[in-house]
Amino acid sequence: ALAWLDSERAGLVSAVQWAREERYADTAVRLSQCLGEYLDWRRSFDDLITVCGTAREAAHRAGNQIDGAIAWNSLGNALREAGRGEEAIDAHTHARDLYQTAGDRHREASAWNNLGNTLRQTGRAEEAIDAHTHARDLYQTAGDRHREAIAWNSLGGALREADRAEEAIDAHTHARDLFQAVGDRHGEALAWNNLGVALRSTGLVEEAVEAYEKALEGCREFDDWYRAGRTLLNLALAHQRAARPAEARAHYLQSADAYTRANAPTEAAAAQSRADALT
């Protein structure tokens, strides 16, 4: 499926632009929603910003609050990844407010969680904790254990940023267990990586290494090379902290390779630079 999407991406992105014609608008908006996760996975953020912007405009013309909120929410994710944090906060806030107006509490939770991720990235950890807690509670009320796991994982990151490491460990452990329970191997890998970061921050380096190794298995299983690169970088940092420079250098080099495969040249160069410093 990924290979097909890779080969057809340019045409699919172009097809979303047909949303500007009324007769194609509904189908093109649905197509933009289907492409969101794929474009995020491939880190094609310019394309994602393009399709989300087109979908948002079409939904607004049609007076469709839910489709508009979905587009705003996805646009916020793309803007965050593109380093445009304040615009992303505005986008997620628009999405949250539209969902609230429409009475869609379930999707509102998604906007809260994404808003929390962006607040955390812009250094507003306490506000992020509040946002992720809102999301978690809404998912619990809805009985959505899968998305509850996502919210727990995000909450753990915010708690860690707020120097509440023990609470972060608990949150990531909750997330890992929930991902395991619902059979989401990729989500479980992300939780293992974040748990490793929290463990390392409390000095539990060997436990962190074990967590990163679990995370790496899952990332490689799904060809998620960007997150594999991040996990390998974390492994390198852990080995370096444990005074194992040879192992650290090897993992930095593997991280650079994974980032290169993920089309993330800036991250690849940073990992290569760390490896060179240990030569």
Rank of each mutant, 00 (worst) to 15 (best):
E166Q: 14
E166M: 03
E167L: 02
E167T: 03
A168K: 07
A168R: 10
A168F: 13
A168H: 11
A168Q: 09
A168D: 11
A168M: 12
I169P: 00
I169K: 02
I169D: 02
I169S: 02
I169E: 06
D170G: 00
D170Q: 05
D170W: 02
D170F: 00
A171E: 05
A171W: 01
A171F: 03
A171T: 06
A171V: 07
A171K: 00
H172L: 00
H172R: 07
H172I: 01
T173S: 03
T173N: 04
T173F: 00
H174A: 01
H174P: 00
H174E: 02
A175S: 14
A175E: 03
A175V: 00
R176H: 12
R176D: 06
R176K: 07
D177A: 08
D177R: 09
D177P: 06
D177T: 08
L178E: 00
L178D: 04
L178C: 01
L178P: 07
L178N: 04
F179R: 10
F179K: 03
F179I: 01
F179A: 09
Q180W: 01
Q180E: 14
Q180L: 14
A181D: 14
A181M: 11
A181R: 05
A181T: 15
A181L: 04
V182T: 13
V182D: 10
V182S: 11
V182K: 05
V182Q: 09
V182A: 10
G183D: 11
D184V: 13
D184I: 13
R185C: 05
R185W: 06
R185V: 13
R185E: 15
R185F: 06
R185A: 14
R185L: 15
H186W: 15
H186C: 11
H186G: 13
H186T: 11
H186N: 14
H186L: 15
G187R: 12
G187P: 14
G187N: 12
G187F: 10
E188L: 08
E188Q: 14
E188W: 09
E188I: 11
L190N: 15
A191I: 03
A191R: 08
A191V: 04
A191P: 01
W192P: 04
W192T: 06
W192L: 12
W192A: 08
N193C: 13
N193Q: 12
N193V: 05
N193A: 12
N193G: 04
N194S: 15
N194E: 02
N194T: 06
L195T: 05
G196S: 08
G196N: 08
G196I: 08
G196Y: 09
G196L: 10
V197W: 08
V197G: 04
V197T: 13
V197N: 15
V197S: 13
A198N: 09
A198Y: 04
A198S: 14
A198E: 05
L199S: 04
L199F: 10
L199V: 06
L199T: 07
R200I: 00
R200G: 06
R200T: 05
R200F: 02
S201I: 02
T202M: 11
T202C: 08
T202H: 06
T202P: 04
G203K: 11
G203Q: 12
G203M: 06
